[in-house]
């Protein structure tokens, strides 16, 4: 006669297991929630401190490499309004010449063609590369149709870069609280991964900016939209998801 035999124990395991049953103390939840709120308040009101910290890393890097670059300040939304003052690198980059222009067209085309030769199992790589080439195509086509003066600068790039990083950290810290701190993961893992992510936020963000500037300096500002729409958000999210997944895999238990 018995058909189903779900009982209390089964509710605790499968299929109704939820984090609620997996015992994370309410006190810890409350504590971390307060921490999150405090962090977000800090992140907003003490933004100049964060930008200074990022700027400091940038200047140390330029000194270390003895590059003829200077760390400056870029105001947002425009030079007259100091609503947000993000660090920037004062480099003058030559606007793209015809030669640069054509080499970009050829280079983009060549990469596009080469990715077509990739094996079927590398399809995501091909798609990813081509996806990131799309902004480049648009840039090339735009300046073919409207051959205006190229008036974009590293300062603009620094505004975009640092403000995006700034916003994304705020968004991700919310997910980090609910997705890692509230989950039943060993405390050591939680602390380690949280501090690693914070280190990457404080030092990785300016390093990545520095690298992007080096690339733009060596090539051309034509790459700016590709960086802004593709590579930078991807890398920053990648760091986060990497730490997040390591933390989760440490806490996950076979059902």
């Amino acid at each position: 006669m018995p058909l189903n035999n779900y009982s209390l124990e089964e509710r605790l395991v499968e299929p109704f297991r939820s984090i609620r049953w997996l015992a994370v103390t309410p006190l810890l939840k409350l504590f971390t929630f307060i921490c999150l709120v405090l962090f977000l308040v800090f992140w907003w009101f003490e933004r100049s401190m964060v930008f200074e910290c990022w700027g400091g890393t940038l200047s140390r890097l330029t000194h270390l490499l003895e590059l003829p670059w200077h760390v400056g300040i870029a105001q947002w939304p425009d030079p007259a309004h100091a609503y947000l003052a993000v660090p920037t690198l004062e480099i003058w980059i030559v606007p793209p010449s015809t030669w640069v222009w054509w080499s970009f067209v050829l280079g983009t085309g060549a990469v596009w063609m080469i990715t077509g030769r990739l094996k079927q199992s590398f399809l995501p790589v091909r798609t990813a590369v081509r996806f990131l080439l799309m902004p480049l195509w648009i840039t090339i086509v735009w300046f073919v149709v409207f051959p205006l003066k190229f008036n974009h600068t590293i300062e603009e790039w620094s505004r975009i870069y640092f403000l995006v990083s700034y916003g994304s950290v705020a968004i991700l810290s919310i997910i980090w609280t609910f997705g890692v701190l509230w989950f039943p993961i060993p405390l050591f893992t939680k602390l380690l991964m949280s501090s690693l992510w914070i280190i990457y936020t404080l030092f990785g963000v300016p390093v990545l900016f520095f690298i992007s500037c080096m690339l733009l300096n060596q090539t051309s500002l034509l790459l700016l939209p590709t960086f802004a729409l593709g590579i930078v958000p991807l890398v920053q999210l990648g760091w986060f998801v990497a730490f997040y997944s390591i933390a989760l895999s440490a806490g996950s238990k076979t059902r």
């Binding site: 990648g238 998801v241 997944s245």
Partner: peptide, 27 residues
Amino acid sequence: GTAAFLDGYQKRIRLLPLGVLFFFVSM
């Protein structure tokens, strides 16, 4: 991540950053 955690996939969760790469194919 939450689903994989609840299902008890342990090390497989570490493949999660690849999902960002898969974004390109799906899109």
